[in-house]
């Protein structure tokens, strides 16, 4: 118990929490754009996975992780377009579409990776982001090494929060996006293009999820492995629900789930006498318990239902 407390209070744990949370933050904040526009963000897993592979390939072939990030965003966005087409244009059931999309992404990434590198067990490393210590701030005791010695994308994930808050609540565009998710008929009546807003929301979530995926492959472990996301997209989706669809709530939930991930890593690394499998299930268990105790919350009113101009839905 005391050793657990030691872990929780250590600088390493704080550092790892921030690190593990940042892909969740990126993906979950992106998910808000999709969900607030009325489209379920259950496809985040597939978008993240595609981004992880595209980021790795981009970095591997160009030699620059920045190219990788651009590729990752494009790949996530492209996958999002497929999902948006199914949900918005074809008015498909969004859960089924997301399940199909996630399976498809797993298949494509596996095929492309094997296609590019063959069926070998060799580890292929791509140029990756290095931690950048922020001058002065990183010298602060405790907080410095915890907060100000990360990869640039990690900082970007945290800086995204105020941007999302501003865009959603302080711009006309944000108002339109939210109105489309709450009452598409009313939004349509006042001249908002519901279809376009929803496509935009989903594609933004795809781009951010793609970049979140690239964090895993070219910032944290520098390689791609099949199914590298291992359900993090779903955890991000849970963070959107647990955070009650507000940027700050979602940000804090993602931080919490990231900390759970970091905790299991730290405990494994220290070799505490807890079976590692039980540690690995901990973040999912925490997400589940969080959802159970978050109680009923108000989701965007038209979330999950397609918009039909003739008023049939």
């Amino acid at each position: 118990m005391t050793s657990l407390l030691k872990v929780l209070l250590s600088v390493d744990f704080g550092y790892a929490s921030i690190r593990m949370a940042s892909p969740l933050i990126l993906a979950a904040l992106g998910g808000i754009f999709s969900e607030r526009a009325g489209v379920l963000s259950l496809g985040l897993e597939g978008m993240m996975l595609s981004g992880a592979l595209a980021g790795f390939l981009g970095s591997f072939y160009s030699g620059s992780p920045w190219v990788g990030v651009v590729y990752a965003g494009l790949a996530g966005g492209a996958v999002a377009v497929i999902y948006a087409a199914a949900c918005i244009t074809f008015k498909a059931n969004q859960v089924v579409a997301a399940v199909g999309l996630n399976i498809l992404a797993q298949g494509i990434t596996g095929l492309v990776f094997r296609g590019a590198f063959g069926i070998t067990q060799d580890l292929h490393q791509a140029p990756a982001f290095q931690p950048v210590a922020i001058p002065v701030l990183s010298k602060i005791p405790v907080l410095g090494p915890m907060l100000f010695n990360h990869e640039l994308l990690v900082y970007a994930a945290f800086l995204l929060l105020p941007v999302v808050v501003f865009v959603l609540y302080r711009t006309t565009w944000g108002l339109k996006l939210r109105s489309v998710g709450e009452n598409p008929l009313a939004a349509d009546t006042v001249g908002v293009n519901v279809t376009r807003m929803r496509y935009t929301g989903v594609v933004i979530s795809g781009i951010l999820a793609g970049i979140a995926g690239s964090l895993l492959s070219i910032a944290f472990i520098n390689t791609f492995i099949e199914n590298i996301t291992a359900g993090r997209g779903f955890v991000a989706f849970a963070a959107v629900i647990f955070g009650k669809w507000t940027p700050i709530g979602v940000f804090l939930s993602a931080l919490l789930f990231g900390a759970a991930d970091a905790l299991q890593l730290r405990i494994q690394a220290l070799g505490l006498p807890i079976p590692y499998q039980l540690m690995l299930l901990f973040p999912y268990l925490l997400a589940l318990i969080a959802l159970v105790f978050s109680g009923r919350s108000q989701s965007p009113a038209s979330l999950g239902s397609p918009y039909d101009k003739s008023g049939r839905s």
Partner: peptide, 20 residues
């Protein structure tokens, strides 16, 4: 030498085509 994950690819496509 085609990986078994090729099946996932075909499966995902089938689901999306069924929807469409």
């Amino acid at each position: 030498g085609l990986p078994v994950v090729a099946v996932y690819f075909i499966q995902g496509l089938i689901i999306l085509f069924m929807i469409a």
